[in-house]
Amino acid sequence: SPMDALELLLTMDNRRAVQLAQMLDSHNRKRQEEEEAIRTDAVQMLHNSFDPERDNVIVLGSRAWHPGVVGIVASQLMRRYHKPTFVIAFDESGVGKGSGRSIPGVSLVQAIHQCADTLVSGGGHDMAAGLVIEESRMDDFRRAFNRYVSETTTEEQRCPVLNIDMEVSFQALTLDLLDSYEKLEPFGNSNPQPLFMSSDVFPTEPPKRVGTNHLKLFMRQGMVERDAIFFNGAERELPEPPWDIAFTIDRNVYRGRASLSISIQEIRSHQEM
Rank of each mutant, 00 (worst) to 15 (best):
S150T: 05
F247A: 02
G211Y: 04
E53K: 09
H66M: 05
I249P: 06
G71M: 01
A246L: 14
W65E: 00
S169M: 07
Y148R: 00
V168R: 12
M138N: 06
R209P: 14
Q44W: 07
I133F: 00
T11R: 14
S169Y: 03
D25I: 11
E35W: 13
L162K: 11
Y81P: 06
R15T: 14
V210L: 04
V224T: 11
T174N: 13
A258L: 08
L8T: 10
T174V: 10
S49W: 07
S190F: 05
T85P: 04
T152V: 02
S198I: 09
S269M: 02
Q114I: 07
F86P: 00
D165C: 14
E134A: 14
Q157Y: 01
G130I: 00
E167V: 02
Q271G: 05
V57G: 06
F50H: 14
T152E: 07
G96D: 08
L195K: 09
V161N: 09
Y181I: 11
A21L: 15
K216I: 15
R54C: 02
R268Q: 14
N48Y: 07
N14V: 15
S26H: 15
I267Y: 09
P2F: 06
D176V: 10
F50C: 14
I38F: 02
S261K: 11
K183W: 05
I112V: 06
S99I: 01
M273T: 12
V210R: 04
C115Q: 01
P52A: 08
L108H: 05
K83Q: 11
N28T: 10
I58R: 04
F170Q: 09
D51M: 11
L175V: 04
S199Q: 15
L10S: 13
R158V: 01
R79S: 15
S199W: 13
P203L: 08
L46K: 11
D139H: 15
R137K: 05
P52T: 13
T174I: 02
P67A: 14
E156Y: 02
V161M: 13
A74W: 03
G222A: 06
A258H: 04
V18S: 12
E155T: 11
F202D: 15
A37E: 05
S150Y: 04
V224C: 09
I164R: 14
E272M: 08
E167W: 06
A258W: 01
D244S: 07
G94E: 02
D117I: 01
G61R: 01
G122C: 03
C115G: 03
G61K: 00
L60I: 10
M78L: 04
K216S: 07
Y181E: 09
L108F: 03
V161H: 12
Y81D: 09
E92L: 05
A234M: 09
L260V: 11
R63I: 15
D13E: 11
P52S: 08
R31H: 10
P241Y: 05
V201R: 03
P242W: 07
P242Y: 04
S263L: 13
N28A: 12
G98M: 02
I164D: 10
E7A: 01
Q32P: 13
E240Y: 04
E240K: 09
E266H: 07
L184K: 05
G211L: 14
V168Q: 08
P203G: 04
V132E: 14
F202N: 12
Q171R: 10
E35N: 13
L195Q: 14
L6S: 13
F187V: 07
